[in-house]
């Protein structure tokens, strides 16, 4: 049957957009397969578990960032973004390490104080953005700097070892043969997923972020949701601190920068993998795991350490460029 003339260009465009759509995932999978063939032992259960293990703290803070982006909209400057989460994670880790190791405070009390600090940061961020109307990007960047500063005071900028059995369990323990950290993180992801996608409050939060005006017309208060998104994000920072302590067997200064970089990369890379190019929980989780897989892959392949950063950065730029191109082709 001859195709109507008017349909042809459209089908060409959608074919092109389908190819561009699939490109980010194809590139990443292609890279991983290439690494698999060239890196010894990469395609093994041990390495897969290692990838998941190492991505755990990033996955947890990505949950927080995705929720803020969902509530505030995905414009990087004016929308929702929270760069302070890694600083919250680092200060909570610092508080727990300092109190447990250097002052013999019971773990539970140290945890309670860390939680208090995290909630304070979340509330401050939320109020500054929603009540004072400050730009989230700059507000949370400034908070990041301030909180890291306080962390230095708390820990005297020194390394603190932690050998509490609970933290050691998170590091070495296994649940059903899988690393405890990975299992607990998976459970957290499922809880957050349920909360955001299966509860009325979560769906309203997404509606507010999707279209602020439409949400207001239907009686929702965008400020309310964005405020709580910041508080939840700070809570994910608090949760991530346990995995930081476990990973490092204590608190080492200077962890926050890499964590922030990977959190932002993973979350927005995740958007490139989602069909609608929006930040999603699963996208962020996938982004975090893929970034970890890629870094471990390059290291396993023995890529010259002086080049790894450039290769990783370029690859991510290509994926994001394709995502941008795809949106343009569609519109």
């Amino acid at each position: 049957m001859p195709m109507p003339a008017s349909a042809r260009p459209e089908s060409g465009a959608s074919g092109l957009s389908r190819i561009i759509d699939a490109a980010p995932l194809v590139i990443f999978l292609g890279m991983l397969i290439y690494i698999g063939f060239n890196a010894p032992n990469f395609m093994s259960f041990g390495t897969m578990q290692l990838v998941l293990n190492q991505s755990v703290p990033v996955v947890v803070v990505c949950l927080g960032l995705s929720i803020v982006v969902m509530a505030g909209g995905d414009d990087v400057v004016s929308g929702g973004i929270d760069l302070s989460i890694p600083a919250t994670a680092v200060i909570c880790a610092g508080i727990i390490a300092q109190l447990v190791t250097n002052t013999d405070t019971p773990l539970l009390l140290a945890i309670a104080l860390a939680l208090g600090a995290a909630m304070f940061i979340g509330i401050v961020a939320g109020l500054m953005v929603t009540r004072l109307g400050m730009t989230p990007l700059l507000t949370t960047l400034a908070l990041f700097v301030a909180v890291v500063g306080v962390t230095k005071v708390v820990t005297s900028s020194r390394r603190i070892n932690v050998d509490d059995p609970f933290i050691i369990f998170l590091r070495d323990g296994e649940i059903l043969g899988i690393s405890a950290g990975v299992v607990i993180t998976l459970a957290l992801v499922l809880v957050f997923y349920h909360f955001i996608h299966r509860t009325k409050w979560g769906l309203n939060l997404q509606a507010v972020g999707g279209s602020c005006e439409a949400a207001e017309i239907s009686g929702l208060k965008p400020g309310h949701f964005l405020f709580w998104a910041f508080v939840i994000a700070a809570f994910t920072g608090f949760l991530a601190s346990f995995f930081l302590l476990a990973r490092g067997s204590g608190s080492s200064p200077g962890t926050e920068n890499n964590l922030m970089l990977e959190m932002v990369l993973a979350t927005f890379l995740g958007a490139a993998f989602s069909p609608r190019r929006v930040v999603t929980l699963w996208g962020a989780v996938l982004g975090a795991v893929l970034v970890a897989a890629l870094s471990i892959g390059f290291k396993t392949m023995g890529v010259n350490v002086f080049w790894t950063g450039l290769i990783k950065g370029s690859l991510i730029l290509v994926v994001l460029a394709l995502a941008a191109l795809s949106s343009r082709v569609k519109s």
Binding site: A39, P40, N41, F42, S44, G46, T47, L50, N53, Q54, R159, L244, R247, G248, S249, S252, G254, T255, N257, N258, I296, K299, T300, G309
Partner: peptide
Amino acid sequence: GRDNQVHADNHDILLAAG
């Protein structure tokens, strides 16, 4: 990358690579 935790994690990669 001058991050002690990343440095520590890198040993896991060497272990997995055998």
